[in-house]
Design a protein around this nucleic acid. Structure first.
Lengths: 220, 220
DNA sequence: CCTACCGATCGGTAGG
DNA sequence: CCTACCGATCGGTAGG
């Protein structure tokens, strides 16, 4: 098909078979990726309002105006990052859940995955958890939908374990937020290169999650 | 000796009328209080960088320049709020701890107080937990000292319970952050007027904290 | 994707 | 504690 460089202006014939169709990786995608990476780092380091579009452009190696070739506003950049991060977290949680297994195993697996993600991807996670206030109301509502799907996964597992009598849950919704706090707050305190690896934290906190609902780890 | 106001320069002289000395609550204090309240709300709603000094001044009923009569910079306002909030949280935690009681009772009491504070004072708490990045390095280091005192309170209780064999703690420092996550993350999700009161959350999460360390609530 | 530029607003200060 | 103002920088656009 195409070699991916896509820089030729004059292919060999006027009917130009190659140039007539989009490349698998158009050049614009690379620029967008650079912009997203630059924006993510700067939003996390300095906050959305503390980041100038010129900071982003410079870190992506473009002129200030080039940002607007790819994104119509600074908020669109934030939204793209926030949505991608939320979707990644949701996919991970949904993929970690194994509905055919017992509640304790499901809970352990989901908390383990969610915690590990927040540690390993703590830069993304920090944007995901702490920059929602700068989204437009429309975009915030779309993100809220993804967030409801994530908390719904926790809620279903807790409800099933409580009904089966293997979880002790006095207040279902309060237990959901408590379990999610354990994971989400990792984004706030985690620093890479420290005392623990993401995998260590995931296992430790998943064990703790079982304790929180009074599940016996031995019979899980 | 002294009434503590420390404002009188000539207490007994008849020609020392009241108005010659500052009032017990000098007028400047009131202006500072209005500035702090305005800055707190705006910093939490829009972030430090998203807040203009003119926003603060207007909400406090002053001209833009009047802010600098009381605080030398926008960051000084943030620091004053952050330090006061941290000190309040530390005082509360230290006051809730009762060293003569058993570890489980101490842990319950401290987690209960810390959680309740984060819910009841969630506006202050949000600034305390999420606006540290905008402090100067010097101010950040001062705040870090207060934070270490708070986490130290948790650590001491956990270590004592573990040594006494009434707490199951595999990784002391990781358990400290897990317990604090439970409390601190309340600042992120709590909304007043919702499903739970601060007292309800405090009791619920304090119970959960005991579960996390494997403490038997009955024999606490 | 660039240069050049728009009006608006920023944190902070002079001078009273 | 005010009016008036400083230079710098902001998000975004015109025109190519």
């Amino acid at each position: 098909m195409d070699d991916g460089t896509g820089s030729r202006t004059h292919p060999l014939r006027p009917d130009a078979p190659r140039r007539a169709t989009p490349r698998t990786r158009p050049r614009g995608d690379q620029a967008r990726a650079r912009l997203l990476a630059a924006a993510l780092q700067s939003f996390v380091d300095n906050g959305f309002h503390g980041t100038g579009t010129r900071d982003i452009a410079e870190a992506a190696g473009m002129s200030p105006a080039a940002v607007y070739v790819h994104y119509s506003s600074k908020e669109e950049l934030l939204f793209a990052l926030s949505l991608a991060g939320h979707q990644e977290a949701l996919d991970l949680v949904a993929g970690a859940d194994e509905p055919h297994r017992r509640p304790a195993q499901r809970l352990w697996s989901v908390v383990n995955a969610f915690c590990e993600w927040h540690a390993a991807n703590h830069v993304n996670a920090r944007l995901v958890q702490y920059e929602l206030g700068s989204l437009t109301p429309e975009h915030a509502e779309m993100i809220a939908g993804v967030r409801r799907q994530i908390s719904g996964t926790f809620r279903v597992i807790l409800a099933e374990g409580a009904q089966a009598g293997v979880f002790r849950v006095h207040d279902l919704n309060l237990m959901v937020v408590a379990l999610m706090s354990l994971s989400i707050d990792i984004a706030r305190w985690y620093r890479s290169g420290g005392e623990w690896t993401p995998a260590t934290i995931g296992r430790h906190h998943a064990d703790i999650a079982l304790s929180m609902v009074g599940a016996d780890p031995e019979t899980a």
